[in-house]
């Protein structure tokens, strides 16, 4: 096992398009680092750079103590699980698992033993004679994972390994993966575009957008103190509402900072009852009501726009009704209107 360090990495394609710009992040030895970002932000590219499938334009990648910039993929001691599995369709599960060992000339007996061990660990022993097209999505995913495990690498690179599965299976496999990570104690980089997956999985997460790192922190911190307006809007579901000061009923009570600000309120931070004395108040008309089980999502129009609130109301509400909502000052996020950077409000 080894740590992974990525320093000031830049990837510029031949056409001049910059896919990654000055990306720095690191995964400690044995850490599960989650990279999250919207589609097309460069997550796969980052993994491919680490794997050595593509070369960096600038910057340094280190695995353990070694700088691997110049090393070919097979010498980097990494394993990768691809976005669409990339199982060899003409080989059985057994052969798929054994491929890497076979290529390196592992003796047959040892190879067989290792393959069966890993298959047992993943619960796919019964599938060994099947071809990938005869597997379910989950079984395919397990096979791809097994193939990576058999390499016994310093670093696992997982590129949206669960994106092609349905939600319950995804949740199940996510738990298995977390358990696997703990038992292997391996360094893993886990790429996903699903922020909820990132929140639930990682020890730390890297939020990537437009080829730049937006924030690196634990899920809790990223959620509670998003570094900028983008992260605030991207992490958390339903997404955060962005308001200006005069959206609130009493503009004067809205805390101000330097320059123009934009305020963020997560839908679940609204409340239908006043809390403490310095709660902010917002009035709007209910446009739509949607049940989420024990909670209700309300869409309101207020003076300047729309907000989404997730509440647990004590009485039945009607569409068209005027309603007043409260937000605790502590739940208010503020961002610089021009740069989008987080602004700390004085209590």
């Amino acid at each position: 096992m080894a740590a992974l360090e990525i320093e000031h990495v830049e990837k510029i394609l031949r056409g001049g398009q910059a896919v990654l710009r000055d990306v720095s992040c690191s995964a400690r030895d044995g850490e599960l680092l989650v990279v999250v970002g919207p589609s097309g932000c460069g997550k796969s590219t980052l993994l491919r750079l680490v794997a050595g499938l593509e070369s960096v334009t600038r910057g340094v990648i280190r695995i353990g103590e070694r700088t691997v910039n110049e090393l070919p993929p097979q010498q980097r001691d990494v394993a990768m699980v691809f976005q669409n599995h990339a199982l060899y369709p003409h080989m059985t599960v057994y052969e798929n698992l054994a491929f890497g060992l076979r290529v390196r000339g592992t003796p047959r007996a040892r190879l067989d033993q290792r393959v069966r061990l890993v298959a047992a660990q993943l619960g796919i022993e019964a599938m060994l004679k099947r071809f990938p097209r005869e597997l379910s999505g989950g079984q395919r995913q397990r096979t791809a994972l097994g193939r990576a495990m058999l390499r016994n690498p310093s670093v696992f690179l997982l590129d949206e390994p669960l994106s092609s599965l349905d939600a319950p299976l995804r949740a199940e496999l996510r738990r298995e993966l977390a358990a696997l990570h703990r038992s292997l104690g391996a360094t893993m980089v886990y790429v996903t575009h699903d922020q909820s997956e990132a929140l639930s999985l990682g020890q730390r997460m890297v939020v990537l957008a437009g080829g730049r790192v937006q924030q690196i922190d634990t899920p809790a911190h990223v959620f509670q103190r998003p570094a900028n307006r983008f992260v605030a809007g991207f992490v958390g579901w339903p997404p955060m509402n962005f308001l200006t000061a005069d959206s609130f009923d009493d503009v004067a009570r809205v805390p101000a900072g330097q320059g123009a600000l934009e305020y963020g309120v997560r839908p679940e931070c609204f409340s239908a009852r006043p809390g403490g004395g310095d709660d902010l108040q917002l009035t709007g008309r209910i446009e739509r009501i949607e049940s989420q089980g024990s909670e209700w999502d309300l869409e309101l129009t207020h003076r300047l726009g729309r907000v989404l609130a997730r509440l647990r109301p004590e009485r039945t509400l009607e569409v068209g009704e005027q309603i007043r909502l409260w937000v605790a000052r502590g739940h208010l996020h503020a961002f610089d209107l021009t740069s989008g950077a987080r602004v700390e409000l004085k209590p």
């Binding site: 993929p73 990339a86 060899y88």
Partner: peptide
């Protein structure tokens, strides 16, 4: 043939001939 197969094989240590 998807490029990923070749990428996967390269990572697993297969050379050009393999």
């Amino acid at each position: 043939i998807p490029d990923e197969l070749y990428d996967a094989a390269r990572i697993e240590g297969a050379g050009v001939h393999q």
